[in-house]
Amino acid sequence: MKEITFSEALGEAMLEEMQRDPTIFTYGEDIAKQGGIFGAYKPILGKYQDRILDTPISEEVIFGSALGASLAGMRPVAEFHFADFLFTGMTAVANQIMKFKYMTGGQGKIHLILRGPDGISKSAAAQHSESIETLFMHIPGIKIIVPSTPYDMKGLFKTALKADDPVICFEHKMLYAKKGPVPEEEYYIPFGKADIKKEGKDVTVVTTSRMVHESLKASEQLAKEGIDVEVVDLRTLVPWDKELVLESVKKTHRLVIAHETWRRGGWGAEIAATVQEEAFDYLDGPIMRVGAKNVHIPFSPPLQDFVVPDYNSVINEVRKVLNV
C-alpha cells in the first residue's frame, strides 16, 4: 500500500484508464494548464495534452456536448468546476443527459462523466459551497458517486470510466488534500456497494463524503462513553446499498443519517423512509438526520460553522436516538 492524496487518486484513475481507452478525454475550465483548481489533473499534464482541454465558461455546452460526444463514440469527462455551477448548465444535464436514453427507448450508450468539487471550504460563501447531490438522486437518469477516501475515489472513478451510463462524481473540496492508503495493484469498486468504515453495535450512522470523516471522529468521542457506532459509507447514491443499510440497522436497531447537504428534503429523508418501510420492527428509536440548516452557506466563519454540520452534530443526534 502506498499513501496518496484524494486528488492524486483521481489523477491515477484517469491516467490508468486513459492509457487503456483512447476514447477517454476530459475538458472544463482551468484544467489543461493548471491541472484543475485543486490539482486533480496534475498527474495527466504533459502526458495526454491532446485529450485534456481548457474550455470557454459555457456550462450548457460543457455538459450538453458530453452527451453528443458520448453518442458519437467518445468517453468524455466534463468538469463542472464547482457543484454550484451545475445550475448554470443544468438544463443540459437534467433535460438532455439524464433523459436521452429513456425518452429514445434505450438508444445510445451515454458513457460520460460529470465531475468536480462540491461542499464547503474555508468561507467560499453561498455560490461556491453547495452540496446538491440530492437533486441528482431525485431526478432519474444518472449514477452518483460520492467518495470519501483516496481508495474509494480511485476505485469508483475507474468503474465510472468503464460504465456505459452517465455518472456524476462529487468530490468534496476538503478531501482533495487528504491522504490515504491505495494499493499498487489495479482495482475497481462496483457501484451500489457501501463500505463499513467502522464496525459497531449500538447505532448505525449512514453517511458519505466529508461527513464520513466527521462521523468517524464522532464515533471516537462516543467510544470514550462506551457507545459503539457503526459508520456506513454509502459511496454511491444511485444506486444505494439498501441491503447493507438494512442489515446494519437490524444489528444496531438505531439509525442516524449524516450529510452536509440541507437536512430538509436531503437524501437522508429517502434513506429514513426506506428503512422505516422495510425494517420498522427492528428500530428501537426514531431515525435521526444530520444536515445543514435550511439557509445558504454563509461567509463569516462563525456563521458557516453554525449552519454546516460537523462531528458534534453527529454526536448530538446519536445521543438523541440513544436517549443519553
Binding site: E60, G64, S65, L67, L71, Q96
Partner: peptide, 29 residues
C-alpha cells in the same frame, strides 16, 4: 423525442436550442 442513433439522428428535441450543445459534442468527437 424521436431519434435514430444508428443513422446519426441524435434526437429531435423538446427544448428550444437543446440540440446545439449536443451537436457541438458530436463535432468534438
Amino acid at each position: 423525442h424521436i431519434a435514430d442513433v444508428s443513422i446519426g439522428v441524435l434526437g429531435a428535441n423538446g427544448e428550444v436550442a437543446g440540440g446545439l450543445p449536443i451537436a457541438v459534442g458530436a463535432g468534438m468527437a
